[in-house]
Computed example of a mutant assay.
Amino acid sequence: MFDISFWELCIIGVVALVILGPERLPGAIRSTVKTIRSMKSMASGFKTEVEEQLRVHELHENLKKAEKMGIDNVSPEVKQSVEELKQAALSVQEPYKKKKTDDPAE
C-alpha cells in the first residue's frame, strides 16, 4: 500500500518516541491501530454493500429480460435469477406472516 522501507519505519518510530515520550507512545500506537482497523472495516462494509447492490441490479435486469422474452423462452441463468428473486421475496414475506399469526390482537 505505502512504499515505506524498514529504515524509514525505524526513523518514524524514533521521532515518535522523542516527540511523544515512552509513556504516551504505546497509547498512540494503539489508537492509531484502532483507527486503521475501523477504516478497513468501513471500507470492507462499503465494498460488500456495493457488490450486493450490483448483484441485485443484475438480478433485476435479468427479470426484465425474462418478462420481455416470456418466462418459458429464457436462458438457464435468467431462470436461475428469477428463482433467486422469488426465494428472496418469500424470505422477506415470512417474518410478516409469522407476526400476523402470532399476534392475538388481530
Rank of each mutant, 00 (worst) to 15 (best):
M1T: 07
D3W: 03
I4E: 07
I4G: 02
F6G: 03
W7A: 15
E8P: 02
E8G: 02
C10Y: 03
I11M: 08
I12S: 10
I12M: 13
I12G: 01
I12Q: 12
G13L: 07
G13F: 03
G13T: 10
V14I: 15
V15E: 07
A16W: 01
V18P: 01
V18E: 07
I19C: 02
L20T: 01
L20H: 08
E23W: 10
R24E: 12
G27P: 00
G27Q: 08
A28C: 05
R30L: 12
T32K: 05
T32E: 05
V33W: 02
V33T: 09
K34Y: 05
T35L: 15
I36H: 08
S38E: 15
M39E: 15
M39I: 12
K40F: 09
K40V: 11
S41P: 01
S41I: 05
M42G: 12
M42W: 06
A43W: 04
S44D: 12
G45T: 06
G45M: 09
G45P: 01
F46K: 14
K47Q: 11
K47S: 14
T48M: 05
E49V: 01
V50W: 02
E51C: 04
E51L: 15
E52Y: 09
L54S: 09
H57C: 06
H57K: 15
E58M: 11
L59M: 12
E61Y: 04
E61A: 12
E61Q: 14
L63K: 03
K64A: 13
A66V: 13
M69V: 01
G70S: 08
I71F: 14
I71E: 08
D72H: 09
D72S: 13
S75K: 14
E77R: 10
V78N: 05
Q80C: 04
V82E: 02
V82Q: 02
E83V: 11
E83L: 14
E83Y: 05
E83G: 02
E84H: 04
E84P: 01
E84G: 03
K86R: 14
K86I: 15
K86P: 00
Q87S: 12
A88W: 03
A89Q: 09
L90K: 11
L90Y: 02
L90N: 07
L90V: 05
V92A: 13
V92F: 11
V92E: 13
Q93I: 13
E94Y: 11
E94I: 08
P95H: 03
P95D: 05
Y96W: 15
Y96N: 06
K97W: 02
K98E: 12
K98A: 11
K99L: 10
K99E: 04
T101A: 06
D102R: 05
D103Y: 00
P104M: 00
P104K: 04
